[in-house]
Write a protein that binds this DNA or RNA. Sequence first.
DNA 1: CACGGAAGTCATCGGGCGTAGAATTCATCA
DNA 2: TGATGAATTCTACGCCCGATGACTTCCGTG
Lengths: 222, 222
Amino acid sequence: MSGAARTSPRRTGRRPGSGDTRSRVLQAARTSFGDRGFDGATIRDVAARAGVDPALVHHYFGSKQQLFLAAMEFPLDLPTMVPRLLDGPRDELGERFVRLVLELWETPAVRPLLLGVVRSATTDPVAAAMLRQLLAEGPFLALARAIDQPDSALRATLAGSQLIGLALARYVVAVEPLASAPPEVLVRALAPTLQRYFTGDLADTARAAGPAGAGGAGGAPT
Amino acid sequence: MSGAARTSPRRTGRRPGSGDTRSRVLQAARTSFGDRGFDGATIRDVAARAGVDPALVHHYFGSKQQLFLAAMEFPLDLPTMVPRLLDGPRDELGERFVRLVLELWETPAVRPLLLGVVRSATTDPVAAAMLRQLLAEGPFLALARAIDQPDSALRATLAGSQLIGLALARYVVAVEPLASAPPEVLVRALAPTLQRYFTGDLADTARAAGPAGAGGAGGAPT
DNA sequence: CACGGAAGTCATCGGGCGTAGAATTCATCA
DNA sequence: TGATGAATTCTACGCCCGATGACTTCCGTG
């Protein structure tokens, strides 16, 4: 009754770790941040999903913020992405771009990442900065710059607004029938919009294709 | 020393209320939810902004959820809004719609409300349902239905995706130069997009205006 | 003037959070 | 073999949250 030395339930200390613990934690963090956003996710939940003690998460990543940064750092290879988008008929550029973005969102390994950034960006300043940079300095701007048109910065953010809106409506809020529409339908529906934002006349109100450039477009002329 | 009846610092109980306390709490809730979203906002913060005890907020609204519902219930008069949008040249409909939405966002009394819904919708299910309903059953659908075109539900959500994306990029994340662009520039830039989503050919990929309807559009056919 | 209900405050409970540090076990290498 | 450091767990601190209930003060009504 007093000793209980042999069957002591003291199960502390290191267990024969499987070795991939750190990446399991990272993966758990991605899905947790993706499901709940930065504020909603908790270190305890991440640890539970990874089958690990919460303190271990801290041991590896230091703080919740650093865990978020480590988990959301996605492998977008821009230097090879942009040339591939520019390769092909210029008037199919919008179509190629929409298709690429949709493919990214439909990729199971990538979606939680994007979800995490979008879900967090509405309340967390760090995540907001990440999204801001993605839309204003990422592939959107690179693409807009590669095209010989004025107002490339404005064009990039216009394209970004349409695609982030699509993502929000389709993947975050799940508005029907947008959420269930086949990707190819969306490509056909969105391609002309993107095409126009990148290469079209922004002052054209569609009904009267008047002389281009009249009034121009405000914002930073880049 | 013992009595202290007259100058007793016991300042509890009701104060000669100014009468508009309840609406002050509501207003504080709007700005708090608008700034931080549902999860980020706290009843204590709302009470502090209203200069009131936190328990009073409960006394009035019961729970945080009910407070949110009461604060976000905005006065959008759809029955008079939709006819006004339909009144005028049909090929300027996109332009009128963009202008109306921008005016709403630029109205100081309305912006915190919209901000609150958008900021909360990415993580809170109730807010997500509100946004879903706004995009799929609100003015967007009413407008799309009023136009004699197939796939009105899909058209409505496409228009919604562009405008919610604009809101997210311009007002929530503040992507430049989109955030500082004059409204009129955005009207000109976005009007053709909305016009096409409502009245155009969704299967048209812009470069080849082939026979309409080929392939149609998926999702619910209404 | 009595009184009941509304307005308002206070104190507190129970719970979840991020973070920290000590303790323990395992693997490796001199 | 002995020691050293990394991997892992336990325990706990301090904080803030939403919610509750008792209490006090004011006001309108009869």
